[in-house]
Design a protein around this nucleic acid. Structure first.
Length: 598
RNA sequence: GGGGGCGUAGUUCAGCUGGUUAGAACGCCUGCCUGUCACGCAGGAGGUCGAGGGUUCGAGUCCCUUCGCUCCCGCCA
């Protein structure tokens, strides 16, 4: 019945169709009934076209007058160039219209709970997200959402082609797999055949891709779902997609160059140019200058340590903090003095924003007439002021802001976040700049409550040699052959050169506190594999959802996932997760011990 | 788990120090309209103010509890 052989897409009607008969199918976007003539905009995935129903031509005027928004129709008619004074310049197809001869309503539609048409000024862009997700199929019908998913597709195509061109083989790995310690909480799947045992959904295909290297596949990639049962954020979903890759007989440089090339191609999908090569900074530099391991390099405002500069200043707060081993760091907001009133600096920033970020307070100074101006400047001698101006590279019109705390870690953390807050507040983050970088030389371990744990993951190769006889502090200072790629302050991907020696891998597990039986039970197959000739290898994984969101300039990966879950990890459309029949639980040998409230 | 914000018509929102019958815009329905395109004109319908409790002569507004959504922190090798 459907005339798909002759179908023309609404959004593709152009000069080439002038005077031709066409069949178009889609959804009614708007209806304008003039009593005599009736116009509709018909929408499909390619765009909109105006259809004219003229009673002297159309055979179905009565039916046409019953059309409502979102009815599904197919129209056959003739493409006609519009009269000059009726061209709609807001429409890509605005020079053309289809004069309807026949029209068939394929399906009626209820009035949608929110506007579908992106033409609506107060349109669905601002509609409550939970409502959009409940009717996600309607939300997807909106051109802006379709466009995001089409871009995601285009990016996936680029990734596949680029990696295939570089001799990478796409292999898929199991979704039902084995739970391993460390990392995030697992999603578990009970086994019916082996009651009391569980599969875990993979947090990443890490072990499998390394085993593919042992299998001699040399270069592997996969675009795959990963699962982590942790609390959600705008850029964190319980299931998300990774571009996972691994290669043998390579080093860090290979991976970095490959990924830079890949990212250039991906951003080119939307005509965005990236610098080449990406700037690199070490973990230590990043922490010191930006307060975290995912620096936003779109704007300046690096953090400057002034602890030594103000060590002798006779200001009690600073003296107390310095004597207890604390640090004082600042940022110089260049030339923004007139935009930062005393009220904002003191009442807003110092009393509200900074405390909410976790520090006790914030000290600020203006630079005027080559002098520091502040309520605490009286405690500084002329030479101390001069030294401070020099360290901060302070000039007239600048505002200096300092955070001091007895915990150097807290200073980094709070000032790092405050730096971003101030940049956003002042609107000095350029919207047309994409600033990628590599962060390297991560610590291999971090010390959490006196226990060493892997910072990246336990398969990362140390930069030097280590052995289980080394003490904790020594081990905590060992760096890893790991690297993260960061764009605009968002970690987009990360990876490392892996351990390929069974002895070294065992040593790492031991350092992490795994017993010999734990190692055998959890990773025995993995260590065994290394005993049969594992090649040196390494790789990286990119968060596809974050990458697509970055290309599209949106903050939430929910905008680039067809059916995302909400903040509570619930799908508002299907209402998953849900209870199951007692028989299902019985089959699985699973008993629910919490009261079920729905 | 901790902290912040929000919840009023189908949608997006307004609703003052508590005070008649809770409003606007868009959408929806009916009619009119020969070129509109955010069509226009005339008329109309539509509300458990998230839920429960309390204070009060009187609660959308104040208090308590609770539910939902959202943002930040924790968490996320």
């Amino acid at each position: 019945m459907a005339n798909w052989r002759e179908r023309t897409y609404c959004g593709e009607i152009n000069l080439g169709h002038d005077g031709q008969s066409v069949v178009i199918s889609g959804w009614v976007d708007t209806v304008r009934d003039h009593g005599h003539l009736l116009f509709i905009h018909l929408r499909d995935i390619k765009g909109l076209i105006q259809v004219v129903f003229d009673p002297t031509v159309a055979t179905d005027m009565v039916v046409a007058r019953s059309l409502r928004s979102e009815f599904v129709v197919t129209v056959s008619g003739v493409v006609r160039r519009r009269a000059d004074d009726t061209v709609n310049s807001k429409l890509l197809t605005g020079e053309w219209e289809v004069v309807a001869h026949h029209m068939e309503i394929l399906n009626k539609a209820l009035t949608p709970p929110f506007a579908i048409s992106d033409k609506e000024v107060d349109g669905a862009v601002c509609v409550d997200e939970d409502l959009r997700l409940r009717y996600r199929y309607l939300d997807i019908r909106r051109p802006s959402v379709q466009s995001s998913l089409v871009t995601r597709h285009a990016i996936l195509q680029e990734v596949r082609r680029f990696l295939s061109d570089h001799q990478f083989i796409e292999v898929d790995t199991p979704v039902l797999t084995k739970s391993t310690p460390e990392g995030a909480r697992d999603y578990l799947v009970p086994s019916r055949v082996h009651q009391g045992s569980f599969y875990a959904l993979p947090q990443s295909p890490q072990l499998f891709k390394q085993l593919l290297m042992v299998g001699g596949l040399d270069r592997y990639f996969q675009i795959t779902k990963c699962f982590r049962d942790e609390d959600l954020r705008p850029n964190r979903q319980p299931e998300f997609t990774q571009i996972d890759l691994e290669a043998s007989f390579i080093d860090e440089e290979f991976i970095m160059q490959l990924v830079e090339g890949l990212l250039h191609r991906v951003f080119a999908v939307r005509g965005i140019e990236l610098p080449s090569p990406f700037p690199r900074l070490t973990y230590a530099d990043s922490m010191n200058r930006y307060g975290n391991d995912h620096p936003d390099l779109r704007f300046g405002l690096p953090m400057i340590d002034v602890t030594e500069t103000v060590r002798s200043v006779n200001y009690n707060i600073f003296k107390t903090i310095i004597s207890s081993g604390g640090r004082i760091k600042g940022i110089n907001v260049k030339g923004q003095s007139d935009k930062l009133s005393k009220n904002v600096l003191q009442e807003e920033f110092a009393k509200k924003v900074v405390p909410s970020l976790g520090a006790k307070g914030m000290t600020w100074m203006r630079v005027e007439n080559n002098q520091l101006v502040s309520n605490i400047v009286q405690f500084f001698t002329d030479s101390e002021q001069s030294a401070l101006r020099q360290v901060m590279q302070a000039e007239d019109g600048d505002v200096l802001m300092f955070i001091a705390d007895s915990s150097p870690r807290l200073v980094n953390d709070v000032l790092g976040r405050f730096r971003c807050y101030v940049a956003d507040f002042l609107g000095i983050i350029p919207s047309d700049v994409v600033a990628p970088c590599w962060v390297t030389d991560f610590p291999l371990f971090e010390l959490i409550d006196g226990q060493l744990s892997a910072m990246h993951h336990p398969f990362t190769q140390p930069s030097g040699t280590i052995d289980s006889g080394m003490n904790r502090d020594t081990l905590a200072s060992v760096s890893a052959r790991a690297y993260d790629v960061v764009i605009n302050g968002v970690e987009i991907g990360g990876g490392s050169i892996r351990i390929h020696s069974p002895e070294q891998q065992t040593t790492i597990f031991e350092i992490l506190g795994l017993s010999e039986s734990d190692i055998r039970q959890k990773f025995g197959f993995f260590i065994d594999a290394f005993k049969y000739g594992a090649p040196p290898h390494g790789g990286l994984a990119i968060g596809l959802d974050r990458l697509v969101a970055m290309v599209l300039g949106t903050d939430s990966i929910r905008d680039v996932i067809a059916f995302p879950k909400n903040r509570m990890a619930v799908c508002p459309m299907t209402q998953a997760p849900d209870t199951v029949d007692p028989e299902q639980l019985s089959d699985l040998g699973v008993a629910v011990t919490v009261p079920v409230v729905r």
